[in-house]
Simulated scan of single mutants.
Amino acid sequence: MRQLKYLLVILGLVLPELAFAHGPTRQKVTLNTIVAAEPAAVWEVIGNFQDMSWHPAVFSSIGEGGNDIDATRVLTLGAEGGPTISEILYKYDAAKMTYSYRITDVLVEVLPVTNYSSHLTVKARPEGGSTVEWRGAFYRGYPNNDPPPELSDEAAIAAVSGVYQGGLDALVERFGAP
């Protein structure tokens, strides 16, 4: 009994400290948009993992492997010589009009995230047109407690949301809203 009391006292002292030492939590962002075009037309534009020219932030996209699992691409942002993001494809299903990829290399000054994965999907709407869903999960750019503001959870969420919204807005501009 005495050992149990001793153990409970130790746990009572240690467990609260562990709660404050946990580091970052995984963040998630999901954005959707509705476009007037049918899913096949939208997929024709966004379904090629190697070609992200439809996104206004992407200056160029080069890669290897087509749409096969483990295909890679490097996105150059903004202009020639701009910052880059390296990515790898880990799921691809043309019949379901969806693919999933991970970032393998990006400077946190470019996109303040780590351990980032994302999914892009096109779905038919009963009323006609399509819903495009872009969702991702990631950790903030600073792995320890007390991150600087530019590498915080809020900064990571805002940056990823901005990337997704920019791409989705470009699709609405291209295909129109219903």
Rank of each mutant, 00 (worst) to 15 (best):
I103S: 00
R102L: 04
E87M: 03
L4T: 15
S161A: 15
V110T: 14
T25W: 00
G167T: 11
T131M: 13
L107K: 13
T72S: 10
T84M: 05
E133H: 07
F49V: 11
P112S: 09
Y139E: 14
S161M: 08
R174P: 06
A57Q: 09
D146R: 08
R174Y: 10
W134D: 07
P56N: 11
G47K: 02
H119V: 11
V110Y: 01
E17M: 10
K123S: 14
G166H: 11
D105H: 03
L151E: 05
K96P: 01
M97S: 07
S152T: 12
E150F: 12
S60D: 09
S86M: 00
A137R: 07
L77Y: 05
Y139T: 15
V106Y: 03
R2V: 15
I69M: 09
K5R: 10
D169N: 15
T114S: 13
H55I: 14
E154A: 15
H119E: 08
W54I: 11
R174N: 12
E17G: 10
A137V: 14
G162A: 14
V42I: 04
A71T: 14
Y101F: 06
L77W: 02
L15Y: 03
G65T: 15
T33Y: 01
G81C: 12
W134A: 10
T114H: 05
G141P: 03
E44A: 15
L18N: 09
G66L: 13
D93P: 02
Q50S: 12
G47N: 07
M52H: 06
D169Y: 09
M52Y: 05
I34H: 07
I10G: 08
I103K: 00
A156G: 13
T114Q: 08
Q165N: 10
K96F: 01
S60W: 05
L111W: 00
T30I: 06
A94Q: 09
L31F: 01
L31P: 01
T121I: 10
V160N: 04
P126V: 15
Y116N: 01
F59P: 02
T121L: 06
N48Y: 04
I103M: 01
R102E: 05
S117M: 10
T121A: 09
L15T: 13
A159K: 08
T114G: 04
M52N: 07
V74M: 06
D169Q: 13
L11Q: 07
A158Q: 11
P126Q: 14
N67T: 15
D93N: 09
Q165P: 01
T25I: 12
R73N: 08
L75D: 02
P147I: 12
I69V: 15
P126H: 13
G47D: 06
L7T: 14
K28I: 08
E154H: 12
A137Y: 08
L171D: 03
L31H: 09
Y6P: 03
N144S: 13
T30E: 04
Y99V: 09
Y92H: 06
M97K: 04
I34N: 06
L111S: 08
S161K: 11
I62C: 03
R140Y: 10
L89F: 06
L120H: 07
D105P: 01
A36C: 00
R26D: 07
I34G: 03
Y99A: 04
I157M: 10
E80K: 07
